[in-house]
Design a protein around this nucleic acid. Structure first.
Lengths: 257, 257
DNA sequence: AAATTGCATTTCATATAATGAAACAAAATA
DNA sequence: TATTTTGTTTCATTATATGAAATGCAATTT
């Protein structure tokens, strides 16, 4: 409430409005959004229609509701991360997804969270589906635990409360530190339904040619399809992919800011 | 010159500035951009730094120059076309690129031009590299000619001048109509260096399950690698991919506006 | 080492655009 | 037909955007 009025610059307001258009809520009417933002219809209308004129917004000709437009897609594709990083990782991701037959992800650190930068979905019907450009908690995912384990991090990083997502989530800082130590030793992390019941993930680090960790690579699938004796096999396939990516990316270091 | 002053709304100004960040010119300093826009440094600075605070812009910590930020990548990935269409086409594109070993593209019609919505680059060193979200002329590309041939179009569509790009470009309307008729009969189009010298493309239509054309699929490679006797082979592989995509997309119809 | 250039950034009085209430038009609903 | 609910437009008021000049910082030149 009173979201817009709190922001002083038009630039801020513009992008605050865009943030409301998510994957889960792709369409808003002027009235709905005005109510949500506690702003006048005129104001919201002007923002949306100005953006619509530029193709940043798309207006459904039938319902009159607004959604994100093609121009934004266009701009998003110009962002460096895409051409510099994903172009190099994606082909490998395809290979790994095919050989493991589960959804594979690449995640990096951003704001203490895991940020998904690339994915290839499992060819199987029942599969995990995440949105590129979204976030997950670091301590409750295999991607995050790998990133933590292989990064040089402040020991006091975990003074912050570790949020519980399921009964398996690690919420004790000491326990997490032990887990990370083990992960660094083993070279991989597993998430046994620690973030979501029914979801199991395995992840390995992606290093650049200077052996700095730049991202992590995971395979994720439904718990009932996971066989513990297959774990070394998954890890082997992931590591093979990670090594291939390492070859592809050179000394590339992702600047996430 | 005087680009910014001509625009009355901040929303317009914001996105006008973003448009200056292209693939060819990914970075601008405050001073450079202020000069280009004929605006004051303060103004440009404020736009860029406001956007930078939100992650829309990225500022290189060394040079101080600005580029497009991750948030924009994030927003771009939320655009419907991406999740609804590309997710379904990309895996097939990978397969086709691998089997043909040339860069493959998917294009749709937008504003009488070919709009690139997805691509997978050739694994070979020498390859064609296009930007997703960019445009090419319809009459001078295989993607475009397929789209024209299989769309129900106005006969008078081509009264507009057909721009010449190379010595092979079809610039005569009657000749183009003949070509389109042939393409419809054959089920594929070829571009023999009609847009760019040294570039040869082959394209086939992608139909949805109602048999409406929704996009076209092409393979593009350097002319000196192209063997005429391999053409039926390329077409066969492309058609196999197009059929797979048809299965994936159902009765999906792309709304490009 | 001092001076100079070249840059991003900040300041502040003024010009200009953003704002919301209300009116409007058009469609959906009763 | 009457009523409600939309998206859109208008316009006087308010608040933000603007640019010249100043600042601070670093790299380069004297």
């Amino acid at each position: 409430m009173a979201v817009l009025k709190a922001l002083k610059s038009s630039v801020d307001k513009t992008f605050a409005i865009l943030e409301y258009f998510t994957v889960d809520r792709a369409e808003w009417s002027v009235t709905e959004l005005a109510k949500e933002l506690d702003a006048s219809k005129s104001t919201v209308y002007r923002f949306l229609s100005d953006m619509q004129k530029r193709g940043i917004m798309y207006q459904d000709p039938v319902s009159g509701k607004y959604g994100l437009g093609l121009k934004l897609f266009e701009l998003g594709n110009r962002v460096r991360i895409k051409s510099a990083f994903t172009d190099k990782t994606h082909p490998v991701l395809m290979e790994v997804a095919k050989s493991i037959t589960e959804t594979v992800h690449i995640g990096v650190f951003k704001d203490e969270q895991v940020y998904y930068v690339d994915k290839v979905e499992s060819p199987q019907g029942l599969r995990i589906s995440t949105t590129i450009g979204s976030y997950s908690p670091a301590h409750a995912t295999s991607l995050g635990k790998v990133l933590l384990a292989f990064s040089s991090y402040d020991e006091n990083r975990f003074v912050q409360r570790l949020k519980r997502y399921t009964e398996n989530t690690i919420t004790d800082c000491g326990q997490l530190k032990e887990e990370l130590k083990k992960i660094k030793k083993d070279g991989y992390a597993v998430d046994y339904e620690e973030f979501e019941i029914g979801l199991i993930c395995v992840a390995v680090p992606i290093l650049n040619q200077k052996n700095e960790i730049v991202a992590s690579l995971s395979a994720a699938g439904p718990a009932n399809r996971f066989k513990k004796e297959e774990l070394p096999n998954y890890v082997k396939k992931l590591q093979k992919g990670a090594l291939q990516i390492q070859k592809n990316i050179g000394d590339f270091k992702l600047n996430i800011t």
